[in-house]
Amino acid sequence: MSDRYIARSTEIAARILGGEMMIMSAVDSTFFTLNEVATAVWQAADGRTPLSEIVVRAVCDQFEVDPEVARADVDAFVDELSRHGILLVSDRPFDNASSGPGEAA
């Protein structure tokens, strides 16, 4: 399977609270709460790091999980979040994606 790149939408406001990322979509005012592993993926979504590398660095290196399980879970999570429009997915790196801790005004 070819690699993918993920970037956070700019149409959101996000804050981390108690290890969980809280995200408000500016498009439809939907309010999302991510668990700790999902938050780690979200924070690593800089648009330039391949998803396979994010799985290793943000998930497998930090949490006790089999790499294949982590990859499958992250793939499903990314697909679901992209359907809600707050995570952008591409087969190429994004030019002007935001880096940083994943929080946004």
Binding site: M24, L34, V37
Partner: peptide, 23 residues
Amino acid sequence: HKESARSAGKKPYHKPEFRFERA
């Protein structure tokens, strides 16, 4: 005698999930 070393210091894993509500 059993060798845990690899996972030492790692946090328990939970499937990445989110919940959402229409504000």
